[in-house]
Design a binder for these strands. Structure first.
Lengths: 168, 168
DNA sequence: TTAAACTTTCAAAAAAAAATGAAAATTTAG
DNA sequence: CTAAATTTTCATTTTTTTTTGAAAGTTTAA
């Protein structure tokens, strides 16, 4: 396969994966484009490569910066801003995990904590089922949370190492 | 908090979480409703509880069955179908992991395998960056895949156990 | 200063996703 | 068989999400 074709396929696949996981397709595509670019790109270049508008490119790049996946760079003598994506896959994975933890896991745990305090009649099946379900989900969420915390502190390559033996 | 209020909040929160993770909000809400229902519900009841149309309820319940999260049940003497959700949180987590692995991880690995075979000039930075990025993502994806495989075979309660010590 | 280069904003438009509901299909009791 | 009960389908509508692009805002070189 040619590099040009492969690039397009990668951008498309990354966009699709993103959208399946609740990430805006264009944001995932811009991320893909920058990940495979050795050099930082300008807004103009991103717009041209992906055929998107200036406004879209600007907002998407801002979001990627908020996620910690992309950084602004400046070149001496150039007035324009350049955008460069983190390329280390483990660092990328950490960023995503950290952000999603903050944006989604922490808020839902807060709600589950409140819901676990619902009061009612222990003999009422509706109450029992509600309480049990919410409590169990809460426990799972807290375990995911703790595991992520530990994982995020872990060595860069824990994932590529032999963690698998744990489950032996 | 009253049970009725708590139920509504739970359904709302579960729907929101679902939509953040690329799951149709209504599907997540129907799932939430069934998870906290001690008894299997009819399509009519789901429609009424969530104020959704028959068509929507029908398709959503079908999807939940496809995910392995809900099953059809029949009551003797009743002609209608009833829907009952799996309540064990670990089993639910396995179902979701298994489905998403099948629907999203396996396909992307297939594509990454193809893309890793792109040919080009080793001295070309664009080629080098592409190759490295794709290869690294591929490695990570394969490790996630293997870890999920092992996890899915694991004991019901591995997650609630002391897996955390692994990362010590 | 100031004007050109560049970036950001956001109301409006377009596109995508989800929901509706009535007709068609299916099932089953009698 | 047959007709009532129930489920499924899917063209259309509605809602939600995403994108556009031009105007406003900002920065900087001279």
């Amino acid at each position: 396969m040619e590099l040009a074709e492969a690039k397009l396929k990668f951008i498309e696949a990354w966009g699709k994966l993103g959208s399946e996981w609740g990430i805006n397709r264009t944001m995932a595509q811009v991320h893909a484009l920058l990940m495979i670019s050795p050099e930082a790109l300008t807004t103009e270049e991103v717009m041209a490569e992906l055929s998107i508008s200036r406004g879209n490119a600007n907002m998407t790049l801002r979001d990627l910066i908020d996620w910690g996946l992309v950084e602004k760079r400046h070149k001496t003598g150039e007035r324009k801003e350049f955008f460069y994506a983190e390329k280390d896959v483990w660092t990328i994975a950490r960023c995503v995990a950290e952000e999603r933890k903050k944006r989604e896991l922490t808020p839902i745990i807060k709600i589950l904590d409140q819901l676990a305090e619902v009061d009612g009649d222990t003999k009422d099946p509706a109450y029992k089922t509600f309480k049990t379900t919410v409590t169990d989900i809460n426990k799972l969420a807290n375990n995911v949370n703790k595991t992520l915390d530990t994982m995020l502190k872990a060595e860069e390559n824990w994932f590529f190492g032999s963690i698998l033996k744990v489950f032996k």
